[in-house]
Write a protein that binds this DNA or RNA. Structure first.
Length: 215
DNA sequence: ATCCCGAGGG
DNA sequence: CCCTCTGGAT
């Protein structure tokens, strides 16, 4: 599907982005409960914002049991800055209740179970599995991963599931989680949707899009 | 103005 | 496929 060398892509992106030491740009929660809630909250907002509101949220509601009984409007107030606060408040409380009722109070560690929780899709489930359970089951394809992959020429598909199939075929499993973070970061900072900074991209020489984007 | 590591529903 | 939900940062 591609003649791009995965190791070259990896090492160049690694040299550019330090995934482990960017404190405010990535969620750094350890237990499954915190990871699940923080990841649901992170939609359409920044990780800095999520880190802020979860400090208070987790102090007041330290586990699934506590959050499952939290008053909706209190949760709404606490998470308000993250946006979509009504939907998110409803989802994280309902998800906690479902974890209590159907999973004996433990956040499930299987994709099929996680996706059943309200507010949790494949993207969120992938992150929870990777961060909280060290179970990397695939590459979560969001708009950034899709755009970067298509421009590089790693895939010609547009369907996220098929893109994922192409990516997992190219990259060794031990790099899947890293690829996810690197592509998303690159997509945000350099390979943006509107005006990609190809002149500032260290992948430009092997990128299909950059070579056709030259002016 | 425009964008942000989504999910659910029509 | 489309739309909606939302505030904050830049």
């Amino acid at each position: 599907m591609t003649d791009l060398d995965p190791n070259t892509i990896l090492s160049r992106l690694r040299s550019r982005y330090d995934l482990l030491n960017s404190r405010d740009e990535f969620l750094h929660f350890k237990n499954p409960y915190e990871t699940l809630i923080a990841t649901i909250l992170s939609a359409q907002t920044t990780d800095r914002c999520v880190n802020m509101v979860t400090r208070e949220l987790f102090m007041k509601y330290p586990d699934v049991a506590a959050l499952s009984e939290a008053p909706v409007q209190d949760v709404e107030k606490l998470i308000h800055p993250t946006g979509f606060f009504r939907t998110k408040a409803r989802n994280i409380i309902a998800a906690s209740q479902m974890v209590m009722k159907e999973f004996d109070g433990r956040v499930p560690d299987e994709m099929d179970d996680l996706v059943r929780l309200p507010g949790v899709g494949r993207k969120t489930a992938n992150i929870v599995l990777d961060h909280a359970f060290s179970k990397t089951v695939g590459i979560a394809v969001d708009t950034h991963v899709r755009r970067v992959s298509m421009r590089l020429g790693l895939t010609d598909e547009s369907d996220p599931d098929r893109i994922e199939m192409d990516l997992v075929r190219v990259f060794p499993k031990e790099f899947w989680a890293e690829i996810n973070g690197l592509f998303i970061l690159h997509g945000r900072r350099v390979c943006t949707a509107r005006h990609p900074a190809c002149d500032n991209c260290n992948l430009a020489d092997l990128c299909r899009y950059a070579s056709s984007n030259k002016m």
